Every structure is written in structure tokens, then in C-alpha cells.
Simulated scan of single mutants.
Amino acid sequence: MDTVDKAMEFLKTLPKDARVSVNVGAEGAVSRHLRFPRATADVIAEDVWCRRDVGAMLEDAGKEPSDANIDAVLAAVPRGLDMFLDRLTEEGSEILHVIYDDAIESLDR
């Protein structure tokens, strides 16, 4: 069973109101770095980053935000998106502590 079939089977198990995201490669094939979607009923915050964000970075650097340039930047760092997701998790955890630690400490139990 290929990755697309596995992903489709997994999607069928989710509740009807679940929100999911899937990375799709340039050729329409599901990315080899597919992280199986997860139900988001328990998610307290969500953010979406997309290709136009990379385009904005290119513009900030004085470069043309063309599809070809966006593809070139993304391809230049093969594990870049994985590294980005890892950093989001790390930084997000630290931010949660900064915001909520005092509230947690104030709880009786």
C-alpha cells in the first residue's frame, strides 16, 4: 500500500468535523515527509504557513517571489520544512510556558 492509500485510509477514520492538512509535492504526489493528519478538536491554537510566506521572504531580500524561486529556496534545504516544524514545536512550548506558568502556579491542585 503506498503512502497516498495509507493517508486516505487514515483520513477515513477521523471524525467528520476534523480539520486536517496534507503536504502535496509539485508533481501532485503526497510528500515523502507526510505527517499523518490529526484531528484538531483538542487544538487550542493553529497557524498555517504557505508558499507565499517564502515569497514574502524573497521580496524582503530584494528577490523575485516567483514560483521558480520559491521552489529553488525550498529545494535548497531538503529537510527545511521538517526543521521548521521542529522549531515551531520547541518555540511554541517555550511561549506557552511564558504565557501560562503563572496561571498554572496559582492553581490549588
Rank of each mutant, 00 (worst) to 15 (best):
L14H: 02
L107S: 04
K6M: 15
D102E: 08
A26I: 10
V30K: 01
Y100C: 06
I44Q: 08
A103F: 09
D2I: 09
R38P: 00
F10D: 13
R32P: 09
S31M: 10
I70G: 02
D53Y: 00
G92F: 04
I99Q: 09
M1G: 13
P37C: 07
K16I: 12
R87Y: 10
F36E: 02
P65E: 06
D53L: 03
L85E: 15
D86V: 04
M83A: 09
G62S: 04
L96D: 02
E46P: 00
D101H: 04
Y100V: 08
D5G: 11
A61Q: 09
D71I: 04
E94P: 00
R52P: 03
T3E: 14
G25C: 04
D60Y: 02
L11D: 02
D102S: 05
A39R: 04
A76P: 04
A76D: 14
A76K: 12
A26E: 10
H33L: 12
R35M: 13
V73S: 02
E59G: 01
F36D: 00
S93I: 06
M1R: 14
I44D: 09
M57F: 11
N23V: 15
L81H: 00
L58Y: 07
D42S: 11
E64M: 05
D47C: 02
D53W: 00
T13V: 07
I104D: 08
A45L: 09
L81P: 00
Y100M: 11
E27T: 10
A29S: 12
I104E: 11
P65I: 08
D42P: 00
T89N: 08
V20H: 10
V73H: 01
L107F: 10
T13S: 15
K12P: 00
F36V: 06
